[in-house]
Amino acid sequence: MVNTLHVLTDGPECPTMDIVAIHGLNGHYMDTFTHKPKFAPSTMWLKDLLPKKIPGCRTMSFEYDASFNSMSIANVRDTARSLLELLKDEREESKYANVPIVVVAHSLGGLITKQDDYPGMANCTKGIVFFGTPHRGADAAHWAVVAEKIGHAVFRTSKSKFLEILVRNSEDLYEITEDFRPIAANYAIVSFYEEYAYNILGKVIVDKDSAIMGLPHEQKMMISGTHTSMCRFSKRDKQFDAVWKRIKRAADGVP
């Protein structure tokens, strides 16, 4: 799989902001953010809903190999660097060169976001919206539930570099947190945490204590859904109002 930054919607001649989505562990650049009812059309809110609420925004979604059975040797820092270079290329010498950036990150995607150390991009990034990001990790058994659809045997034999980081209180996770702490005050930060447990586990995948960093300016909000469904919205989902309004505010930077 080649790391790719997909442009989902392009804005008008006078763009207002760039919105960059990053999926999580075993996620997909489209499916992670797509509501798929059984008897109605699918809704990919980054493409179908958000541009109507925030005129002039351009939405993008980053595709990278986060599968459980990945043989990639890339770690969080490698993946973050790839994203930053692709985003730089997408914005360079264009009408989007100086518009603010808001990152929307699910789960592992939030840890990748926290590695934003490219000066030009860091200055333009005004806000980060986290969905169930395990800032303090989660128990290995919890990630096994996420792996359920592809079988626990795959999880147990997984070679993915990302799984090592996601386990609660891993050394790499600690380093990512410590690296981010000095620059966190530069961004408007919204942290959504999941409300519903998985039946098979009886617990949420990423608990509130892990999904929230405890920063003074951090906005915190519980959102209905499990770890995988919490960032999927239908056209009639009232929760989407809370999401798009916070994304729009985040483009203004730290309150």
Results as ranks from 00 to 15, higher is better:
residue 1 M to P: 15
residue 6 H to S: 03
residue 15 P to F: 12
residue 16 T to P: 04
residue 17 M to W: 00
residue 22 I to L: 15
residue 29 Y to Q: 13
residue 30 M to R: 15
residue 31 D to V: 02
residue 32 T to L: 06
residue 32 T to C: 05
residue 33 F to K: 04
residue 34 T to Y: 05
residue 35 H to I: 01
residue 39 F to G: 00
residue 40 A to R: 13
residue 42 S to A: 09
residue 43 T to R: 04
residue 45 W to N: 07
residue 46 L to Y: 10
residue 48 D to Q: 03
residue 50 L to F: 12
residue 53 K to R: 15
residue 53 K to L: 06
residue 54 I to T: 08
residue 57 C to A: 12
residue 59 T to Y: 05
residue 59 T to E: 07
residue 63 E to K: 14
residue 64 Y to W: 15
residue 68 F to Q: 02
residue 73 I to T: 11
residue 75 N to L: 00
residue 81 R to P: 00
residue 87 L to I: 08
residue 91 R to G: 02
residue 92 E to N: 11
residue 94 S to E: 00
residue 94 S to N: 03
residue 97 A to D: 09
residue 99 V to N: 05
residue 101 I to G: 04
residue 109 G to I: 08
residue 111 L to G: 04
residue 111 L to I: 06
residue 112 I to K: 11
residue 114 K to E: 05
residue 115 Q to D: 12
residue 116 D to F: 13
residue 118 Y to M: 15
residue 119 P to C: 05
residue 120 G to V: 11
residue 120 G to T: 12
residue 120 G to K: 14
residue 125 T to S: 07
residue 127 G to S: 04
residue 129 V to H: 01
residue 134 P to L: 10
residue 135 H to N: 09
residue 137 G to W: 11
residue 141 A to E: 13
residue 148 E to C: 05
residue 149 K to F: 03
residue 149 K to Q: 07
residue 151 G to A: 01
residue 154 V to F: 00
residue 158 S to C: 05
residue 161 K to W: 01
residue 162 F to R: 01
residue 167 V to S: 09
residue 170 S to T: 13
residue 174 Y to C: 07
residue 177 T to I: 00
residue 178 E to Y: 05
residue 180 F to G: 02
residue 180 F to I: 02
residue 184 A to D: 03
residue 189 I to R: 10
residue 190 V to N: 03
residue 196 Y to H: 14
residue 198 Y to L: 09
residue 200 I to A: 15
residue 201 L to T: 06
residue 203 K to Q: 14
residue 203 K to R: 15
residue 206 V to R: 04
residue 210 S to W: 08
residue 212 I to W: 04
residue 215 L to N: 07
residue 217 H to C: 03
residue 219 Q to L: 12
residue 220 K to C: 12
residue 222 M to D: 01
residue 225 G to A: 09
residue 226 T to Y: 08
residue 227 H to S: 06
residue 228 T to P: 00
residue 229 S to H: 05
residue 235 K to I: 11
residue 236 R to D: 15
residue 241 D to P: 01
residue 242 A to D: 10
residue 243 V to S: 09
residue 248 K to I: 01
residue 248 K to V: 02
residue 248 K to M: 05
residue 249 R to P: 00
residue 254 V to G: 01
